[in-house]
Deep mutational scan, measured.
Amino acid sequence: TVKFKYKGEEKQVDISKIKKVWRVGKMISFTYDEGGGKTGRGAVSEKDAPKELLQ
């Protein structure tokens, strides 16, 4: 599970739902399947990112 803040809201998403991951400076950005055909997005700092996300 990845915990992150998006627009001031605390969120979390299961690693299995993450589609795409990329690095922006010291942040790790990602998109994930929100269900219902929607794609969500989020970002975590490199130090807070789970190891599975960095692979």
Rank of each mutant, 00 (worst) to 15 (best):
I15Q: 03
F30S: 00
T39Y: 10
D33F: 05
K38N: 08
T1V: 15
A43P: 00
R23M: 08
T1S: 13
V21Q: 03
V2F: 10
D33H: 05
A49M: 05
K11L: 08
K19C: 12
G36A: 10
P50D: 03
V44H: 01
E46H: 09
K5N: 11
K5E: 08
V24Y: 12
K38G: 07
G25N: 06
P50I: 06
A43N: 12
K5F: 15
K7Q: 10
D14V: 07
G35M: 05
D48F: 13
D14H: 14
D33Y: 07
I28V: 07
A49H: 01
G25H: 05
E34P: 03
D14E: 14
A43Y: 15
E10P: 09
D33V: 06
R41L: 14
T39C: 11
G37P: 03
K47D: 13
E52T: 08
K47E: 13
K5Y: 15
D48G: 06
E34I: 11
A43R: 13
K26P: 10
S29V: 15
T31S: 07
T1R: 07
V44Q: 01
F30Y: 01
V13C: 08
R41P: 02
G40K: 09
L53H: 01
Y6R: 06
T39I: 15
W22C: 11
G36T: 07
E52N: 07
V21Y: 06
K7M: 14
E34W: 04
K11G: 03
S16Y: 08
K38C: 07
D14S: 11
S29R: 15
V13G: 00
G37Y: 04
V44C: 06
E9W: 06
K5V: 13
L53A: 01
E46V: 15
E9L: 10
V44R: 02
E10Q: 10
W22G: 03
K19G: 05
T31R: 03
K5C: 15
R23E: 02
G37H: 04
T39R: 08
Y32F: 13
W22P: 01
T31H: 04
K7W: 08
S29I: 15
F4D: 01
S45M: 13
K47V: 13
Q12N: 07
K3W: 08
R41C: 13
P50R: 03
Y6S: 10
R23T: 05
G40Q: 08
A49N: 01
T1L: 15
G36W: 08
K11H: 09
K38E: 07
W22E: 04
D48T: 10
I28W: 03
Y6F: 12
V24D: 13
K51P: 15
F4E: 01
K20V: 09
E46N: 05
Q55Y: 11
K51H: 11
P50F: 02
P50E: 02
G40R: 06
Q55M: 14
V44W: 02
I15H: 03
K38T: 10
K20E: 13
F30P: 00
I15T: 07
F30Q: 00
K38H: 08
K5R: 12
V21G: 02
T1Y: 14
E52R: 07
D48K: 10
A49L: 04
V2E: 00
R41S: 07
A49V: 05
G40N: 06
R23H: 09
T39W: 09
K26E: 14
L53P: 00
I15F: 08
E46T: 12
F4M: 03
F30L: 01
Y32G: 00
D33I: 06
E10D: 12
T31F: 10
G37N: 07
K5H: 10
E9G: 07
A43E: 11
G37I: 03
V24I: 12
K20T: 10
G36F: 11
T1K: 13
F4P: 01
K17H: 11
V44I: 15
A43T: 15
S45L: 15
S29A: 15
D48P: 01
Y6K: 06
K3D: 05
A49T: 03
K26C: 13
G42Q: 02
E34R: 08
F30R: 00
T1Q: 11
K47F: 11
T39H: 07
K20G: 07
V44E: 00
G35Y: 04
K5S: 09
M27F: 13
D33G: 03
W22N: 04
P50M: 03
K17P: 00
Q55E: 14
S45P: 14
K26L: 11
E9D: 08
Q12T: 15
L54T: 09
F4T: 02
E9S: 07
G8R: 03
Q12V: 15
E9T: 13
E52Q: 10
K20S: 11
K47R: 13
I18H: 00
K17R: 12
E52P: 07
K7N: 13
V24K: 11
K20C: 15
V13Y: 02
T1D: 06
Y6Q: 09
Q55K: 14
V21T: 06
Q12A: 11
V21S: 07
T31N: 04
G8P: 00
L53G: 01
W22A: 04
K47L: 12
E52K: 08
D33R: 03
K51N: 10
A43W: 15
G8E: 04
W22Y: 09
Y32W: 09
R41I: 14
K51M: 14
G8K: 04
K51S: 12
R23L: 08
K19P: 00
V44Y: 02
L53D: 00
G35S: 06
G8Y: 03
S29F: 15
V13L: 06
K19V: 11
R41G: 03
V13I: 13
K19M: 12
Y6M: 07
V44N: 01
S45W: 14
E46I: 14
F30C: 00
D33E: 09
D48E: 12
E46L: 15
G35D: 08
K7I: 03
F4C: 03
K5I: 15
M27T: 10
Q55L: 14
V24R: 09
